[in-house]
Design a protein around this nucleic acid. Sequence first.
DNA 1: GGTACGCACACGTTTACTTCA
DNA 2: CGTGAAGTAAACGTGTGCGTA
Length: 268
Amino acid sequence: MGFDDICNTGLVLGLGLSSKVKSSHLKTDDPKKPCLKVDQMAKTALSFEPSLTLSLSGEIYDQVAKKIDANKACNGQSADLYRQDSAASSFSNVSVKRERELGSEEGEIERNFSRVSDEDDDGPNGRKKLRLTKAQSALLEESFKQHSTLNPKQKQELARELKLRPRQVEVWFQNRRARTKLKQTEVDCEFLKKCCETLTDENRRLQKELQELKALKLAQPLYMQLPAATLTMCPSCERIGENNSKSPFTIAPKPHFYNPFTNPSAAC
DNA sequence: GGTACGCACACGTTTACTTCA
DNA sequence: CGTGAAGTAAACGTGTGCGTA
């Protein structure tokens, strides 16, 4: 593994402000919730809080997803599942899948109808559980792919189309968003673990290298140590800078720290 | 400007249901 | 075949932010 691999982790260590602006408010899907205006932004900026975050930069998500996809290939999981536009991917579990494959579509729809109507009659304590049909799930997924949130009109329309109550559509979308987020978190976690492993390995390697260099230095006579000790080299750009200090063992006044999280060229 | 209200959402939890050992 | 554990997803409760009257 090369040094570049470490540098291009795509991780973003950010000391910044965490916004409390809801993502849904940044969308234009809902006519009642237009895009955040400038004055609103200024207003919401007041609610920003300082935060230290270690996260993935957006541009490398595809890369990451591909890597993880390769690891999870045996599980039949697709990297698409974890991308932002993965909304259409099905999260329905195998059990439901099998049930749906076995059962007839019409029968299921009828069952759902009766369940929904039963539920209305069950009173406050009745909590029947609806199982969506394949067709219903597909339509919901399709809709979710287009908008991860629904405005009231879209909700009504979808509910009518699916022969469900608007509340059920709403709940489905809420749960769907939560599942997407959870999956994304898992991907982030997986990626960060890999980064941690990589950095640990690199650290070990550098420690070893340092030990070797120290040993080498001790083995050399003093006069041979002088020139090397007065020079510092930036590991990223390999430029050599001169140290004005007379002492062979002093550290350069402005050491060039190498930060693997930033662009290598930025180190100098 | 401050307040109450309604709405939509995120998040955590509960619960019905299914699968599998 | 019955049963309990585990997993999944629908439904629910609560807190919060925002727009509006």
